[in-house]
């Protein structure tokens, strides 16, 4: 029962925070430097790990597909299989999970510590709403960076699949063939659907992480607790949203 009220309170404060931040949207232009800084933090710092993970996910997909398809001689379809799985599902989900772990946790830690050390209170007394200078630039930045990260993830994943398909002896599929089926069976809409998903995931992850950070009560010990909660809630949220958004998009 208590947990249920906590969840409702959490959703309530996140919605409230969203409303307040959107209300400040017109100030985004004069907060340009903050927006750029957040784009850098969200995009640039997650890029290496997104590339590494996508590469291996694409490789594993190609390996598994090649293994199961060799028996019925359909290995030229590996390209379409890797391409579609990356673009529609694994790319966006993986990028969202990495953003939750790498960026979301950092956001919660920063805002929670500002809260605990009364920096947030100080902002309020100075008539500077935290939703304006702390939350809005992050939400805007994640909306810009998610599609970029996801496209890079998709491309690197496809490439990983192609390399594995060529150099694995029992697959030995030429890249031309691989990319030919990839192109033939994949429509622009598949990539677009993936980007839309990534957009939704990233936005809600950042919103939830901001909200949990700002709702932190108590002393320095609570900062760690908030970070853990933010990451767990983000991961659950990504998978739940994934189901519903996929259902809507299909």
């Amino acid at each position: 029962m208590k947990q249920l009220t906590n969840i409702c309170a959490g959703i309530g404060s996140a919605v409230l925070l969203l409303g307040k931040s959107i209300g400040h949207a017109p100030t985004l232009l004069r907060q340009w430097p903050r927006f750029i800084e957040q784009c850098y933090l969200i995009g640039y710092t997650t890029l290496p790990i997104v590339a590494i993970l996508s590469f291996f996910i694409g490789s594993v997909l190609a390996l598994q597909a090649g293994y199961s398809m060799q028996s019925f001689g359909a290995k030229e379809f590996i390209g379409s299989l890797v391409g579609l799985s990356m673009a529609r599902e694994l790319g966006p989900v993986m990028v969202a999970i990495l953003v939750a772990g790498r960026v979301g946790s950092a956001i919660t830690a920063e805002l929670a510590s500002m809260k605990v050390y009364q920096e947030i209170d100080a902002l309020e007394t100075m008539n500077i709403p935290p939703s304006r200078i702390l939350v809005l630039p992050r939400l805007a930045a994640v909306l810009v960076m998610m599609p970029v990260l996801t496209i890079i993830g998709d491309l690197v994943g496809w490439l990983g699949g192609a390399i594995v398909s060529k150099y694995t002896p029992f697959i030995a599929l030429e890249p031309e063939k691989y990319f030919e089926t990839l192109r033939r069976f994949m429509k622009f809409k598949d990539v677009l659907n993936g980007l839309e998903k990534a957009e939704v995931f990233g936005f809600f992850v950042v919103l939830v992480c901001c909200s949990i950070g700002l709702e932190t009560r108590g002393g320095p010990r609570e900062i760690g607790a908030s970070v853990t909660r933010a990451v767990v809630v983000s991961l659950i949220l990504i998978l739940v949203l994934d189901y519903f958004v996929t259902k809507i998009l299909i």
Partner: peptide
Amino acid sequence: ALVFQAGALFNSLSVYDNLALYPREN
């Protein structure tokens, strides 16, 4: 203006920017 017990200075900002934040943002 309230001077908080622990100062509540913005740790990510220099002293100058701490002081400039209020007039800038408003």
